[in-house]
């Protein structure tokens, strides 16, 4: 469990919130013109970063408002909370070293680093 500082309600436990996944994914303007690969990239492919990730969260059992969170996924440390529509803040942090040496992106799942030829 960790605490999230809702911009409206203040500090509450994580159970009151719902995570809406990675933030700043823009819906393509002309979906019919996309290839299946491009469309599936938009729909399904997420970075799953080990380290600082920008996420959307909703205070579903409180004020029901959406907001963005910069969270270190390795430590659950929340570094910044900012409004929907704002650009991601320029912050960086150190990810924890992993004994098994997983990659930063798609940690534990090498297939996500696969690039199409």
């Amino acid at each position: 469990m960790f605490l999230i500082n809702c911009p409206y309600c203040g500090e509450r436990e994580q159970a009151e919130f719902s995570c809406g996944g990675e933030a700043h994914i823009v819906r393509p303007k002309n979906p019919p013109e996309l290839t299946d690969d491009q469309w599936s990239e938009y729909l399904f492919m997420r970075k799953n970063i080990k380290g600082i990730q920008f996420e959307r969260w909703n205070h579903s059992n409180g004020c029901r408002r959406w907001f963005n969170v910069a969270r270190n996924t390795a430590t659950d440390e929340i570094l910044k909370i900012y409004n929907m529509g704002e650009k991601p803040p320029n912050i960086s942090g150190d990810a924890l070293d992993t004994p098994s040496g997983e990659p930063e992106i798609g940690s534990g799942n090498i297939s996500t680093t696969y690039t199409k030829k």
Binding site: C9, A15, E16, N61
Partner: peptide, 10 residues
């Protein structure tokens, strides 16, 4: 006032 969870009930 405060909206929260009582065990798991809103």
């Amino acid at each position: 006032v405060a909206q929260t969870l009582f065990i798991k009930v809103p």
